[in-house]
């Protein structure tokens, strides 16, 4: 049985940061119910490692990393691919699905809002954009969270921004946010 103070500490932290975790999760997945599932799964993992997380210099960073990893892992599941494919027409990382979906989204209509544009990013690009621009993390920090090289973060950022530019407005002028 966990120590009461550990439970209290954990409960206090999650209560205070739940709104923030939900927002990040929502930006990652674009659906509040799924965002709540992501947060639920993430805080469960967080609790299992609370002895380590609570000693971290940056508990928020630990929680965010857990959340992003949970999201990315889920993206590679068959369910997530189906959801992305059929709801958004996006790229879930590669899957052969047996049910026909809506027309393929090769048309990339312009004038999409930010929500839909984000939804059409492949998972790692989307996570990169959220971490870099919403969470305001550096390339190095983003690479650590996503478990990849800094170069990979740069390339994911580049592709993500290019895709968003295409979706939101074809005339966007791409300027680098570069390494920080």
């Amino acid at each position: 049985m966990a120590k009461p103070d550990r439970d209290a500490e954990f409960t206090e932290y999650v209560s205070a940061r739940q709104g923030w975790l939900r927002r990040v999760a929502y930006l990652l997945c674009g659906d509040w119910h799924r965002a709540d599932d992501l947060v639920q799964s993430s805080i469960t993992k967080l609790y299992a490692h609370w002895h380590r997380a609570s000693r971290a210099d940056n508990v928020d960073g630990y929680a965010r990393r857990t959340l992003v990893n949970t999201y990315l892992a889920e993206q590679r599941s068959g369910w997530a691919r189906w959801t992305i494919l059929h709801r958004f027409g996006g790229d879930g990382g590669g899957a052969l699905e047996l049910e026909p979906g809506p027309p393929a989204v090769g048309d990339l209509e312009l004038g999409l809002d930010l929500k839909e544009a984000l939804a059409r990013l492949p998972p790692r690009q989307r996570a990169t954009v959220v971490l870099r621009f919403y969470c305001d993390l550096s390339v190095e920090q983003t690479a650590q969270i996503m478990g990849c090289s800094q170069g990979n973060v740069k390339s994911q950022s580049s592709r993500g921004l290019a895709t968003l530019r295409n979706l939101l407005d074809p005339n966007l002028t791409l300027v680098m946010e570069g390494p920080r």
Binding site: L110, D113, L168, D169, T173, E177
Partner: peptide, 13 residues
């Protein structure tokens, strides 16, 4: 086409 959301958002750090 038009500029529905944030033309510069993607351009700007």
């Amino acid at each position: 086409q038009g500029d529905p959301v944030t033309p510069n958002s993607l351009a700007q750090p």
